[in-house]
Design a protein around this nucleic acid. Structure first.
Lengths: 141, 141
DNA sequence: CTAGGTGCAAAAGGTTTGCGGTTAA
DNA sequence: TTAACCGCAAACCTTTTGCACCTAG
């Protein structure tokens, strides 16, 4: 669960530029997210984080995740009747919720796609984030 | 809060074709949604519904809303850290969450837009619903 | 008549908060 | 050194559930 040097720099840079500290818990939670990019819930992150850091608490996991969402290091993804999921993929992308397995998949977007989506907004509307999500079946599993 | 004849037929038709009953509470909740299309939360629907039907319970409001969502009469819309909101607009459209006021606005889409969105999915992925939502500021209020 | 729906209250589930102790800078 | 952060447990808020009563078909 150790961060690569690059991930370490990204995390600390983002924290520092928000005036926040780097802590063992924040680094570890970030590492957990990077290690397995399957859109875990906060509770799943907690379970994984405890493997190498048994003393970490659920509240701290929530706090770390919230901090990272606010630093734009992590995206929080919501589906109906589901707890929030967390995604360290910073590239513009959409999500697909597979109703069969309950799993969430990243969907890559054509270049500048979010920019095109923004163009459907009426004048005066200024979007600073866009969420595009599909729900359905992904056959073949 | 009385339903128009047309709304009445739409509701009863949808219920009937799902093998469900028409009840006073379901009609009333549907009427509340149609009367003020501002994406109320379940609790807001409850407050409004009680004005003319003081005996209705919150659990029943939740049940009615869930029923209508399952009959495709109502869309359930979710934003981060917000309770679900309910929307009787059946046309394909997107949503805009105004961070200043906390209000949600419908965004009309160009023709066949959802169809175009579906085309970005990889083969094998079959979407049966799409959610496109923006979050940002809507100046001028 | 009776399956399905309602109202109530209690429980569940996810998330946040308050507080005393700990730690990064 | 000290403001920020952590761990814990309790609180919070939205949503669901169980059960006795009611009602639409």
């Amino acid at each position: 669960m150790n961060l690569t040097k690059k991930a370490h720099e990204i995390l600390n840079g983002a924290l520092a530029s928000s005036g926040l500290r780097s802590t063992r818990q924040r680094e570890h939670v970030f590492g957990v997210l990077l290690a397995q990019r399957d859109h875990p819930t906060a509770d799943e992150v907690y379970v994984r984080a405890k493997v190498e850091m048994p003393s970490i608490s659920l509240a701290t996991v929530y706090n770390c995740l919230e901090t990272m969402v606010e630093c734009d290091l992590v995206r929080q993804v919501n589906f109906e009747r589901e707890p929030s999921r967390f995604c360290p993929n910073l590239a513009e992308h959409a999500h697909f919720y597979d109703e069969t397995s309950g799993r969430v998949f990243d969907i890559d977007l054509p270049n500048e796609f979010f920019g095109k989506l923004k163009s459907i907004l009426p004048p005066q509307y200024e979007a600073n984030s866009i969420e595009l999500s599909f729900r359905g079946k992904k056959p073949g599993h």
